[in-house]
């Protein structure tokens, strides 16, 4: 069975729990005392990941780290429909790769602001917030134009991809870092669509969403 080295309040760990839940893949969780224990920085954990960060998965002896790399692996291995990581469509696959790199940017800005406010990480809060707003503005516009084309998700096509999973947490938890989503209506509509996906699970701090109108 897959073993996920996990911290409840890590967005990068949540991405894995969310995809595993949507794909209905059983897994075993190992709770790392990330904060305030810093267990992931200790010698024991560095035997698993010498970089000292989570998430990490161990799938019957196959060990992989880096949140977005794990999403790629899980989707390729456990999504028989092939829709979450569309390897058969070069254009959509390119879009997914592009937006997953974009999600590294939200990690470094929106998530960093959240770590500063919540846990006291030594980051420049205003710079993180300003950076997140620049990215959110781009994503909001992108999603607005997608909606005009009758499409709902970050990458083109009819169904969501792991790019949506990679971006959702940082957006949905942005207020934790003092980043309001008031000015991004398309972004807010998109987070609600993600929250209504079959198999969706939340993480603490995400407000539940009402059922979709009939």
């Amino acid at each position: 069975m897959i073993r996920l080295y996990d911290y409840l309040l890590s967005v990068n760990c949540y991405k894995q729990r969310l995809l595993l839940s949507i794909l209905d893949v059983p897994y075993e969780r190992v709770d790392i005392d990330f904060y305030p224990g810093w267990e992931h920085k200790g010698a024991e954990f560095r035997k698993i990941n010498p970089l000292g960060h989570i998430p990490v998965i161990d799938d019957d002896g196959y060990v992989l780290w880096d949140a977005h790399a794990i999403l790629v692996y899980l989707a390729c291995k456990y999504d028989p429909s092939g829709s979450w990581y569309p390897t058969s469509d070069p254009q959509r696959l390119g879009e997914v790769a592009s937006w997953m790199l974009f999600a590294e940017g939200t990690t470094n800005t929106a998530s960093a602001a959240r770590l500063h406010v919540n846990l006291g990480y030594d980051f420049d809060l205003e710079a993180c917030q300003a950076g997140a707003h620049r990215l959110f503005r781009v994503l909001d516009e992108h999603l607005w134009f997608r909606e005009q084309q009758g499409q709902a998700w970050v990458a083109s096509g009819e169904s969501p991809t792991i790019a949506d999973i990679a971006l959702f947490g940082d957006v949905a938890l942005s207020e934790d870092g003092g980043i309001s989503r008031l000015d991004y209506p398309a972004l807010r509509r998109w987070t609600e669509r993600v929250q209504r996906l079959p198999g969706f699970i939340d993480m603490p701090g995400i407000f539940p969403v009402a059922k979709a109108p009939a």
């Binding site: 709770d31 005392d33 934790d176 603490p204």
Partner: peptide, 22 residues
């Protein structure tokens, strides 16, 4: 429970309270 598991429980509760308080 390990320290990590105890903390997971309490921190999860607090993280739900935080946006309400804010």
């Amino acid at each position: 429970n390990t320290d990590g598991q105890l903390r997971r429980f309490q921190q999860g509760v607090l993280a739900q309270d935080k946006p309400i308080l804010e």
